[in-house]
Amino acid sequence: MMRLWRRHRHWLAPTLFILPGALLFGIVIILASVQTIWVSFFDWDGVGPMQWVGLANYEQLAEDPQFYVSLKNNVIWLGMFMLAPPLGLALALLLNQAIAGMKFLKSMFFVPLVLASVTVGVVFTWVYDPTFGLLSLIYGWFGATAPALLSDEHLVSFAVVIAALWPQVAFCLVLFLAGLNNLNEDLIGAGRVDGARGSAMLLHVVLPQLREVSFIALAVTVIGALRSFDMVAVMTSGGPFGSSTVLAYQMYEQSIFSYRFGYGAAIATVLFAIMAAFIAWYLRTLLRPEQETA
């Protein structure tokens, strides 16, 4: 027995090592995700028997006005989230100085990143409160009345996204600060000798070196925008009148509150398809340099 183990341990041991993690991840994450696609072809209340309905959930989805509201809001999230990388870069450029005390100030700028999204949601619900909120106070100074952002169907999504941008900008700031720290000093020096300064230096010398970091910042921002759920759930519950739902929230609501698990699964599958296209692009870009060297 011992000899058998010794002869085969060079492949048996690694197999045993990888098995627990791979099985757990495979079952709970990968298999479950695939299973959702399967569930989307059924009519199911989550408890009783499942009834095969083919593509009926998707047909219904194509005619559901709420679905288009969610889709539109996801586009708003994605579009506005694109502000996070440039804002993060701008902050990073402002903060990238080695002066006593800057280290502490920089870390204070990172704080929103580690806050729970529930915390951010609660904090911004107060900022937006039409009677007591910080916003109403500022409007008050100018003798104006603040709009009730979270109960205005046209503004609500923008208000929620602005709150969500807070930690996202902090995330991009961390990435860009790290990028600025890894700049090639020789290139910067050469640029200075050639008389490049300010924006010319930024465009032609600094930004090309930040390509990798910018790619990562863009990727985490797109993923963050498509994943948006917590802030909507905490700040508006999709309201008023479903005007701030996103796909992720509509899916949750349909499944958990309306017991339409098949329909919820169909929404999740659409979200998954959007995300999968993006993940495929990301993985290709990510794994390509290694394949070249290998």
Binding site: A32, I223, A265, A268, F272, M275, I279
Partner: peptide
């Protein structure tokens, strides 16, 4: 699979 799965939205695996 590990890397890609880590980017999946939570909702896609919620029901199962």
């Amino acid at each position: 699979l590990f890397v890609g799965g880590n980017f999946l939205p939570a909702q896609i695996m919620m029901i199962p």
